[in-house]
């Protein structure tokens, strides 16, 4: 049984950095004139999705439940893919780069948690 809060691992930190970069890029494209997508629903959507990603990443270390942690991780993974896809169709190439960073982070966070959980399981 999971009984300890997972540490703030490097995966989560990288995910948060990727999400923060994504927010910066998405905000730039949404708010700055002449980006080609400024003020559009699509650009607003990726701004929302990257903010959601950052919040989810920040919440991950707060939950000791594997189910919640993994659910948040998988949602972040889905968020990363869909945001990158939207970035492709919005021609926000830097957003895709940010999502690559976030992808590294979320994979690392999920896999690290699994390792920790196995070790903790072995101690019980």
């Amino acid at each position: 049984m999971q009984s300890e809060q997972p540490p703030l691992g490097s995966g989560v930190i990288i995910l948060m950095v990727g999400a923060a970069l994504g927010i910066a890029v998405a905000a730039y494209y949404y708010f700055v004139p002449l980006t080609g997508v400024n003020g559009t629903i699509g650009a607003g959507l990726v701004l929302f999705s990257t903010v959601a990603m950052l919040i989810a990443a920040a919440l991950m270390p707060l939950f000791s439940s594997k189910a919640i942690y993994m659910t948040l991780g998988l949602l972040c993974l889905l968020d990363v893919f869909l945001t990158a896809l939207a970035g492709y169709f919005l021609h926000e190439w830097l957003l895709i780069a940010a999502m690559v960073v976030a992808l590294v982070g979320v994979i690392r966070a999920i896999s690290r948690f699994s390792v920790i959980h196995r070790h903790q399981g072995a101690r019980v």
Partner: peptide, 8 residues
């Protein structure tokens, strides 16, 4: 390019 909601 055609565009809707910002998407190309």
């Amino acid at each position: 390019m055609s565009q809707k909601f910002g998407f190309y």
